[in-house]
Design a protein around this nucleic acid. Structure first.
Ligand SMILES: [Mn+2]
Ligand SMILES: [Mn+2]
Ligand SMILES: [Zn+2]
Ligand SMILES: [Zn+2]
Lengths: 138, 138
DNA sequence: TCAATTTGTGTAATGAGTACAAAGATATAC
DNA sequence: GTATATCTTTGTACTCATTACACAAATTGA
């Protein structure tokens, strides 16, 4: 049984050769929308792919980002995090547990790029921070 | 002649004991609004303060941020950057040269914190990226 | 088949940031 | 002023995410 059909197709849509490793990583990203780090991806896949190298995960994420299949988030000062949802949405990082959550349903104006600047602006990242629901009690 | 009067006062306003080192770092931040890294601050001050330790700059930035005198920017995946301007404004990072620029005059609505979330949101960071004016030609 | 190219792997190196203990400076008590 | 406690700074060692690199494996396609 192939659970990786969607990932396979998604990779080809983005002109990424779907190797076994790349398909496994994309499959993980599609099923785990937690904005995982390279280490989290590696640790999750490693048991079922014992020869997988962490370098491969790094290379893979670089290709995914370069081809626009995945967005790299700069919100966690410790690690890069990755998001297979490249649509316009914002993020929230909990300063207590470090988890990164999606914030959808923000006004589209927030994602408009400012026009009166001397820069060629390509993208915007909106990052909120504070304490998440689970950590509130603690 | 004291060029550090303002920094000295600013530190006391934020309940930070103005040691020689802290005053020198704050003075640098106030005069160099380039969102410098710890290494940039250290390298700039080191010649005139040969005994300054990089650890002190790290400690100092931690205190400044904790006391609200300075904002830590998470926009550069390589280093933390620091901004003595804690007012609501956005940033732009050039993917070519890595410099971080201010973007003022954005609509205040952009800096409003969303209310319909399960999170206790404390702050927002709006980061644009692309190519800066100087790098456009290259 | 076989050579060229792409992809993956393992190891070593890099470099930002942290931990920690000792030294120095500052404040408080007598 | 001197002693004592506290705060601050310093240097070194360490951690750990990421990168560099060389070789191995897999894929392509003539
Ligand atoms: Mn997301
Ligand atoms: Mn700024
Ligand atoms: Zn949390
Ligand atoms: Zn530039």
């Amino acid at each position: 049984m192939h659970t990786s059909l969607e990932s396979h197709q998604y990779l080809r849509q983005h002109s990424i050769k779907p190797s076994v490793q790349r398909t496994a990583v994309m499959d993980y990203l599609m099923k785990n929308r937690t904005h995982p780090t390279v280490d989290e991806i590696y640790s999750a896949l490693s048991p079922s792919m014992p020869t997988l190298s962490k370098t491969t995960v790094y290379n893979t994420m670089d290709i995914f980002v370069e081809k626009g299949a995945v967005r790299a988030l700069v919100i966690d000062e410790k690690n890069s995090r990755y998001d297979v949802d490249v649509s316009a949405h914002a993020h929230f990082i909990c300063k207590s547990c470090g988890k990164v959550f999606d914030i959808f349903n923000l006004k589209p104006v927030l994602f408009q790029l400012p026009k009166d600047t001397p820069f060629k602006i390509d993208s915007v990242e909106i990052s909120y921070s504070g304490i998440c629901d689970s950590c509130k009690g603690n």
